[in-house]
Amino acid sequence: MRAIFFDEDHAREVVRRLVAQGFEASAERERLSGEDDDEGHPWAVVTDAPELLVELAVDEFDGWLDSETPAPTAPPLDLPAAPKRIKKPLG
Rank of each mutant, 00 (worst) to 15 (best):
A74E: 15
H41D: 14
T69K: 05
D38Q: 11
V19I: 12
H41P: 09
V46W: 04
I4T: 12
F6W: 12
E13N: 04
E28H: 08
A3H: 06
A11T: 01
T69W: 05
A27I: 10
R17W: 03
V19A: 04
R2S: 11
W43T: 13
D38R: 11
V58C: 06
D7W: 04
R16K: 15
E68T: 07
A82M: 07
R85I: 08
D37L: 11
E28V: 10
H41V: 03
W43A: 08
L79M: 14
E30N: 08
D36F: 08
D9R: 07
H41T: 04
D48M: 09
M1Q: 14
E51F: 05
G63D: 00
W64D: 02
P76Q: 09
E13S: 08
D38C: 06
D48L: 10
E39R: 11
A3M: 04
A44R: 13
P70T: 06
G34P: 02
D59C: 06
E68S: 07
F23D: 00
A74H: 10
G34L: 02
D37Q: 11
V54D: 00
R31A: 14
E28D: 07
T47M: 03
E8L: 12
P89G: 08
P72H: 05
S26R: 08
H41S: 12
P42Q: 10
A82D: 13
R12Y: 03
V19M: 06
D59M: 09
V19S: 02
A57D: 01
E39V: 05
A49Y: 10
A3L: 05
R17G: 00
K88H: 12
E28A: 11
L53Q: 04
G22D: 00
V45S: 01
V54Y: 04
T69I: 10
S33T: 15
G63W: 01
F23A: 01
E55P: 04
F5T: 07
G22I: 00
F6K: 10
F6V: 06
D36Y: 08
V45G: 02
A74K: 07
A74L: 14
T69G: 05
A27H: 04
Q21S: 01
L53F: 02
P70L: 10
P76F: 06
M1R: 10
E55I: 10
K87M: 13
H10I: 03
P70I: 05
V58P: 07
G63Q: 02
G34D: 02
E68L: 09
